[in-house]
Amino acid sequence: KANFMDNIVKWFLGFYSRDQRVLPTEPKEQVLRTEEIHVNSAILASKSHFFHKLFSNGMQETDPRNNVTIKIDASEAVAFMELLHYMYEGKVSSSAEGSFVTLMDVMRLSDKFQVVSCNDYFIQLI
């Protein structure tokens, strides 16, 4: 069922803001901004269990005609882009390499999205 042949998938990055101490329930969510980037689903699927299932398990996102939206916390925006960077390049950008906070966020996200075999890399950087 997996459809990794679509080279470029159009998708949105939804950002929603929330008070760090407030529970992430729907009413309080608020989309701050939306960013649209092109990704290669095959690369993402091969690096992350989450993306692999996202593109193949038969729900909405599996259909290549649909755009895919990932909602993340505003504070994670930089880290998320770095994670994508890592999945494509095998490393984070040079600016992130020096930032402890960013690296910790990227690591947390890599756990959330189940990016394969990245722990050693991050631990070594930190």
Partner: peptide, 10 residues
């Protein structure tokens, strides 16, 4: 299932 959002459920 095809109407569900995997991203949201996950």
């Amino acid at each position: 299932a095809s109407g569900l959002s995997f991203e949201e459920l996950y």
